[in-house]
């Protein structure tokens, strides 16, 4: 009898740890569902993921934003994947990478006083950053951002859509000083082929891939032109107002093309 008690005692601690881990997964799923169903006025979360196909610690972060994007009902959750180019070199290239996105990540490192760049990095509302695959921290960050309220001053409109040529305009009633307007052309879904090795030809899938990002000082109204890389995919424009000195994002909106 004593030995059964002993065995149960021995098993209890590892089982407790497993239960805690299972509970954590369950809690994350619940947070994820809450974020995707949240639709309060005057709050938003702009989620920027700095990633690369050449970084093999990045797929869990890419999967996390795919989970956030799938069946998302939250119109104030703006997700963008920015593929940095520092993994590219002769013989290897992430076709979604862009040196401008690396520059943007460097700008965040300056704003946030970080000693190094890394991937996958998630930045929320230009204010907080964390490892992009740390599900709990990312979801917590989004929930916290959604608790803050902001005036809604930005309106976006598609002025022209002819084949691949797009022109969008915005109207802003913002009184904020020293801010930029950033407008991102976002490919909703994308896939890329592994170009080398035994798995050559295998597709890597992505969501919310930023293909172009334009920035200017904000005005009462202005327009931006884009050329779509193709007309087969689904596209979205995400526009947001960002403080020049701190990097904080103070307003955001989007429109499907």
């Amino acid at each position: 009898m004593k030995s059964i008690k002993e065995i149960l005692y021995c098993l209890s601690l590892p089982l407790a740890i497993l239960l805690i881990m299972a509970f954590k997964g369950f809690a994350d799923d619940k947070k994820l569902a809450n974020i995707k169903n949240h639709n309060a006025d005057k709050s938003f979360a702009v989620v920027e993921l700095f990633t690369s196909e050449g970084c093999w610690s990045c797929p869990p972060a890419d999967e996390l934003i795919a989970k956030l994007e799938k069946d998302n009902q939250n119109k104030k959750l703006f997700i963008m994947a920015l593929h940095v180019d520092y993994w590219d070199h002769q013989g290897w290239k992430d076709r979604f990478s862009n040196s401008k996105f690396t520059e943007r990540q460097k700008q965040y490192a300056t704003w946030m006083n970080l000693s190094t760049l890394y991937t996958p990095q998630m930045v929320i509302n230009g204010k907080t950053e964390m490892v992009g695959s740390e599900t709990g921290k990312v979801l917590q960050g989004i929930q916290s951002a959604m608790l803050e309220t902001h005036p809604e001053n930005l309106r976006l409109n598609v002025e022209q859509k002819e084949e691949k040529n797009i022109r969008v305009s915005y109207i802003s009633t913002s009184n904020a000083k020293n801010t930029d307007i950033l407008v991102a052309l976002v490919q909703k879904h994308a896939s890329s082929q592994v170009s080398a090795g035994e798995n050559a030809g295998k597709a890597l899938s992505h969501v919310q891939v930023v293909r172009e990002l334009q920035s200017r000082s904000i005005k009462a109204h202005d327009s931006f032109s884009f050329r779509l890389p193709d007309t087969k995919n689904q596209w979205e424009i995400i526009a947001f107002e960002q403080a020049k000195k701190s990097g904080e994002i103070i307003d955001a909106t989007s429109i499907e093309l």
């Binding site: 970084c55 093999w56 610690s57 990045c58 940095v84 520092y86 993994w87 190094t116 760049l117 890394y118 991937t119 996958p120 990095q121 490892v131 695959s133 740390e134």
Partner: peptide, 10 residues
């Protein structure tokens, strides 16, 4: 260099 979670640029 990489860890299980992140990779740093060259």
């Amino acid at each position: 260099q990489c860890s299980d979670q992140v990779c740093l640029p060259p």
